[in-house]
């Protein structure tokens, strides 16, 4: 996808709508008690994931935090496999043992899905180090929320990336809140990319509500990462739902959410497609209907999938399966 053709515009639209419907179905499963634990929805931020994955080549790798359903999908994970993991099924990407926050598929260059805030930064630096050490042409995109830029890991990893000149794009999705704390209440600088300047890292800011703009910025960032070293990109976005399901949202005014919803990345993108003559209302509605049907089929497949067997309880604890773990004490 390079956002030069009608086909690419429609593909980006289709991907964003798929994420939106997927997340809505997740919320429904959660309310039915079928998804346990925490559930962090990506609704509102879809354009970021679509733009990032569009800009990535087969030599690029992605690692992210716990709000990972959107990029899992844009990296190529099928919705049915995402649903299955969230439902704790054997057919999930991690055999139902990881859950919502731990999606990954190494075959898709998608390295997770990490639930400790900021932990994906040292790990991402390590992926870049590993590829560089093995003299591979690969680069890494490491996503984080604005909240993660206040933790020690951020500073340790971003510093090291410059010291060792690692092929990595630090991509901050600034959705304005770290859980319920606004950026300016938690970060000494609210323009997050300025933190990268302290480490001498080239940086940029982009509109995270438009997939083509994200694509363009990530494309440039990846080129820089591969040819010169680390790059820091801040994508300005907004999550329309709470931090996770059950968030009472006392920290933001409904009018603020309404204002951002007027710039819904999907609605805006729809307008752009129509204005460019790449599609009509009925055509887009048809895509919507098709996606709705596909999501329903995927959800049903996952819902009907088997649970992992009890033999999975101790499986994959060690690579060395001669290690016998005590089960009784």
């Amino acid at each position: 996808m390079n956002f030069r053709s009608k086909q690419d515009y429609l593909e980006a639209y289709s991907q964003m709508v798929t994420i939106r419907r997927l997340e809505e179905k997740c919320a429904e499963f959660y309310q039915q008690g079928k998804i346990g634990g925490f559930l962090h929805l990506y609704i509102g931020q879809e354009a970021v994931a679509v733009g990032i994955s569009a800009a990535m080549s087969e030599h690029d790798h992605l690692i992210t935090a716990y709000r990972d359903h959107g990029v899992a999908y844009t990296q190529g994970m099928e919705p049915k496999v995402i649903f299955a993991e969230l439902l704790g099924k054997a057919t999930g990407c991690s055999k139902g043992k990881g859950g919502s926050m731990h999606l990954a598929d190494t075959r898709l260059n998608f390295w997770g899905g990490h639930a400790i805030v900021g932990a994906q930064l040292p790990l991402g630096a390590g992926l870049a180090l590993g590829f560089k050490y093995q003299k591979k042409p690969d680069a890494v995109v490491c996503m984080m929320g604005d909240g993660a830029t206040n933790i020690g890991y951020f500073h340790e990893a971003v510093n090291l990336s410059k010291v060792w000149n690692l092929p990595i794009v630090w991509l901050c999705e600034n959705n304005q809140y770290g859980m319920g704390t606004a950026v300016e209440r938690a970060s000494a600088v609210s323009e997050i990319r300025r933190k990268a300047e302290g480490y001498g890292i080239t940086n940029d800011r982009c509109n995270g509500m438009n997939p083509a703009e994200v694509y363009k910025a990530v494309k440039r960032a990846l080129k820089h990462a591969r040819e010169e070293g680390p790059f820091f990109l801040e994508a300005m976005t907004y999550r329309f739902h709470g931090h996770s399901m059950g968030d009472p949202e006392r920290y933001r005014d409904p009018s603020e959410i309404r204002k951002w919803r007027e710039d819904d990345p999907i609605g805006d993108w729809r307008q752009i497609i129509i204005e460019k003559g790449f599609g009509t209302e009925p055509e887009l509605n048809q895509i919507d209907d098709q996606i709705m049907a596909e999501i329903a089929v995927a959800a049903q497949w996952a819902d009907e999938s088997p649970e992992p067997g009890m033999d999975e309880l101790f499986a994959d604890l060690y690579a060395d399966d001669s290690i016998v773990v005590s089960r009784e004490f």
Binding site: W111, A119, L121, P122, L123, G124, A125, G126, L127, A128, L129, G130, F131, Y133, Q134, G152, Y153, E156, A157, N159, L160, V163, W164
Partner: peptide, 22 residues
């Protein structure tokens, strides 16, 4: 590889590199 005094990223980057086959 001499590292900065930063144990979190020493361990974390080592884990990440291990994931890639190092």
């Amino acid at each position: 590889r001499d590292t900065p005094i930063a144990e979190g990223v020493i361990a974390g980057a080592a884990i990440g590199a291990a994931l890639t086959g190092c």
